[in-house]
Design a protein around this nucleic acid. Structure first.
Length: 382
DNA sequence: TCTGGGGTCCTAGGACCC
DNA sequence: TCTGGGGTCCTAGGACCC
């Protein structure tokens, strides 16, 4: 029998919005929404409450990135269109996203955690997993980390402590904000089974809808259903996984090191573009995307062996084209050329609202410029 | 005037080789 | 002159997550 692990999932509370409140403490207690693009005219010299942009004044295609708990109480959640949220909360204050600031606070809170543990699994800008000693008092240890982050960053977080990542992740959601939840296998029936299936990390809107159509609404329903039924409607692999998670089974290891696999840049235009009429504008946007991607590849010392493009049309359908390159590259010029070839293979049957470029097959530029595995100049005897 | 941007992983079909 | 199966690589699409 393996000794039980104690995995912690740490999730910052309303992260982007909370960082903004550090900058604008006068907004505490107000419904605040972070999202949309920064306009060139905007600055950070607000002082008066009435000098902030209100949601009702927003025009454009942005979505909510994060909202404060006060805004959530009005029905405004991440991913929602800003125009739609304006109908629910016209008075809410809208702040443009400032990713540089969020990245800086992300770096800081992770640094605090590293004062307590030797490694963590990075799950993005505002959440991590790490393992702690199960023998001590895990809750007290977690509380110390939570307080240290509060003192160092002025930000609150929530944590789930459990024998695996699946349960830890569920736990961190249960007492937000600033909560700590300890879960064990003995809590599965009473705490996990009543949850709707889409609370499980890995069951998204599509699978949840299919499950509900089968009469499976809660995790407990999922646990009760025979696996043959799941196999009928999902792939064998996913069906087996569904059965496991319904019983709280998850043996995934923490992944504390990982190499980047792809890097992409994309942009949604302020209006849809017509492939012929807006040719010049589309070309300019494509140039810009390639330039940004190239800059980022070079900054990180990477080259790519494949290039892809993505187009999203007026009706939201998405097509992608990807191609392997003769040689690894990182220059904007080479990216642009390959992107042009990919774009030629797309059928432009409608106006386009988004264009993206993606680099895959990433290798470090040292590695890429070293000779590849040597092939003989001639093969000699066949 | 609904619906961003940056990622990962999985599946499936066709090409190609043995 | 007709039959196959396995394996790998490449590409496209889609689900999902933060």
């Amino acid at each position: 029998v393996k000794p039980q692990r104690c995995i912690v999932h740490l999730d910052m509370d309303a992260f982007f919005a909370s960082v903004e409140l550090l900058r604008y403490p006068q907004l505490r207690g107000q419904p605040v929404v972070v999202g949309g693009r920064r306009k060139n005219s905007e600055d950070h010299t607000h002082v008066q409450l009435d000098s902030f942009t209100r949601l009702r004044d927003y025009v454009g295609r942005g979505v909510v990135t994060t909202s404060t708990y006060e805004a959530r109480a009005l029905g405004v959640f991440s991913g929602m269109g800003l125009m739609q949220s304006a109908r629910l909360a016209p008075q809410a204050i809208l702040l443009p996203s400032d990713f540089q600031a969020y990245k800086e606070y992300s770096r800081r809170f992770k640094e605090v955690v590293l004062q307590f543990v030797s490694a963590f699994e990075d799950r993005g800008i505002d959440e991590i997993y790490f393992e702690i000693e199960a023998c001590s008092d895990p809750r007290a240890f977690a509380l110390r980390i939570q307080r240290a982050i509060g003192e160092a960053c002025g930000l609150s977080c929530s944590m789930g402590l459990a024998p695996n990542k699946l349960l830890a992740k569920l736990g961190s959601e249960m007492r937000k904000p600033n909560g700590i939840t300890v879960l064990g296998y003995e809590d599965i029936e009473s705490v996990i089974w009543p949850l709707p299936v889409q609370k499980i990390n890995g069951i998204g809107p599509k699978s949840a809808k299919k499950l509900v159509a089968l009469g499976i609404e809660s995790v407990g329903d999922l646990a009760a259903v025979p696996n043959t039924l799941l196999e009928k409607h999902f792939g064998a692999r996913y069906a087996a996984w569904l059965g496991d998670v319904a019983h709280g089974r998850d043996d995934r290891a923490l992944v504390t090191e990982r190499e980047p696999k792809s890097m992409s840049r994309e942009t949604t235009f302020e209006r849809n573009f017509h492939i012929v009429r807006d040719r010049a504008e589309l070309a300019a946007q494509t140039d810009q995307l390639c330039q940004r991607l190239s800059d980022d590849l070079i900054r990180r010392g990477l080259m790519c062996r494949s290039i892809g493009v993505k187009a999203k049309f007026a009706d939201f359908t998405v097509v992608t084209r990807e191609t392997k390159l003769m040689a690894a590259t990182q220059t904007a010029r080479a990216l642009r050329k390959a992107v042009g070839e990919c774009l030629k293979r797309i059928q432009w049957h409608q106006e386009v609202r988004l264009l993206g470029v993606k680099a895959t097959g990433l290798v470090s530029d040292q590695e890429a410029t070293e000779p590849r595995a040597q092939l003989p100049l001639w093969t000699g005897l066949e």
